[in-house]
Design a protein around this nucleic acid. Structure first.
Lengths: 143, 143
DNA sequence: TATGAAATTATAATCATTCTTACATAAAAC
DNA sequence: GTTTTATGTAAGAATGATTATAATTTCATA
């Protein structure tokens, strides 16, 4: 995704393609780490010294409202953001904190008790121990 | 659930059955509103004037660790608590904020991409407009 | 280039949660 | 039965994420 492509995408949604907005969106599209607002702020601060935290929060809200980004509330303390907007599940490792996406068939799941409600968002979050941490655990135990 | 039954349940889990703990657990088992720590605090404060917020937080943590209560993190700022510990989904209305439980078949959903990970918790959260709010909307529109 | 709306910045305020300390109470040891 | 020890509760300060406010800057466009 080049700078210009993203600028065009923002314009399409009637969002003024400011430098900050484009850089934040670009960052979110290039990583799979589901960063927090704070992480995004620090990551970009080195390249955009004048960047303000408010801008990060405002932009994330704007991008979320436009559907270009998704908010993910998995952790206790901070909201995370995801550049992948297609429906998918999240798996968070309770040991290392990593969050990974996984494909999930959300249609296969609900039994009709929600009749009468209009469902707009569907979130699936699994938590446990990831492959790497499991491997490490085994290594520890076999010592 | 009487006071004594809950006291016995706590003892069974090696948790000292203090008055505060029993009252908090009792409250959680009697409502389906998934209250926040703050709500629980205020609800009980009138009857237990000396109650401290720290106690509520500590107790909720203790009860969660013992599996008597579940933490629910839905897309908002405060953690909610649920007295129903069996696996189920949550539906939150974006209009009135109400949260309701629904049955969900979590096994029918994931496609094997999580191979190698140990899944410990599974959360499903839907958001949208609940039946009551939909009905109200229609009433508004037909005016 | 002057104007006004929108964006950004800096900073203050808020809110959930955690931490620290002091005190009270219950269990254990003597 | 008294002293020690562990555990629980209370009060309030501290932290950290987020939101709100006000001032400044940017930018399209007249």
């Amino acid at each position: 995704m080049t700078y210009e492509t993203l600028a065009a995408q923002l314009k399409e949604k009637n969002i003024r393609p400011s430098y900050q907005r484009i850089r934040i969106l670009m960052l979110l599209l290039s990583v799979s780490s589901h960063p927090t607002a704070d992480t995004i702020y620090h990551e970009l601060k080195s390249e955009i010294p004048a960047l303000s935290k408010s801008t990060v929060y405002n932009t994330l809200l704007t991008l979320t409202a436009a559907g270009l980004v998704k908010m993910v509330r998995i952790e206790e303390n901070a909201t995370r953001f995801d550049g992948t907007t297609a429906e998918h599940g999240h798996f968070q490792c309770q040991k290392c904190g990593t969050i990974q996406n996984f494909a999930a068939n959300m249609d296969a799941m609900v039994k009709g008790q929600l009749a009468g409600c209009r469902v707009i968002e569907r979130h699936i979050v699994y938590r446990g121990i990831c492959r790497d941490c499991l491997a490490e655990q085994e290594r520890e135990e076999s010592k």
